[in-house]
């Protein structure tokens, strides 16, 4: 494992809670590793599992999905759908040879800037320990 391995992470963040939480981390100047690239979506339920798989196919080392805490969804129930969808996605990713630790679903509220930075830091550290991902062969 290369010591200077920098994992590539794609983060899908819901606009109302987690994206605002990431903004909050910024406003509070809480530093975290710069590996994550954030894509804004209106709701975690907008995230088609296909997008997650696509990111891995292209070479992402990790994918983070973050949404409002259960019960706090801006659209009342979107995050319940995401929770179930991504619970279903896990075994599929494992089948593809993508370790469970590479795909995280987290709840981050608009006021949890600190939590967001911790999530990104822990996730990144875990991926560094895990090392580069084995390439998925697509036929």
């Amino acid at each position: 494992m290369a010591v200077d391995f920098e994992p590539r992470i794609v983060g899908f963040l819901c606009n109302w809670c987690s994206y605002a939480g990431a903004d909050m981390a910024g406003t509070a100047r809480i530093c975290y590793p710069s590996n994550i690239r954030i894509i804004r979506v209106p709701c975690s339920a907008r995230i088609d599992p296909l997008l997650v798989v696509k990111a891995f196919q292209l070479g992402a080392d990790g994918v983070l999905v973050a949404g409002c805490h259960p019960g706090d969804c801006h659209y009342t129930e979107g995050n319940y759908y995401s929770r179930r969808r991504f619970a279903m996605l896990h075994p599929f990713l494992e089948y593809l040879g993508i370790e469970r630790e590479r795909f995280w679903l987290q709840w981050v509220s608009a006021s949890e800037g600190k939590k967001f930075s911790q999530v990104v830091s822990t996730f990144t550290d875990g991926l560094i320990k895990l090392g580069p991902r084995k390439a998925v062969t697509v036929q």
Binding site: V41, P42, C43, A45, R46, I47, D48, P49, H74, Y75, G78, Y81, R85
Partner: peptide, 9 residues
């Protein structure tokens, strides 16, 4: 309201 839940469903 534009949540996009249907798109992924």
């Amino acid at each position: 309201k534009g949540c996009g839940l249907c798109v992924a469903a």
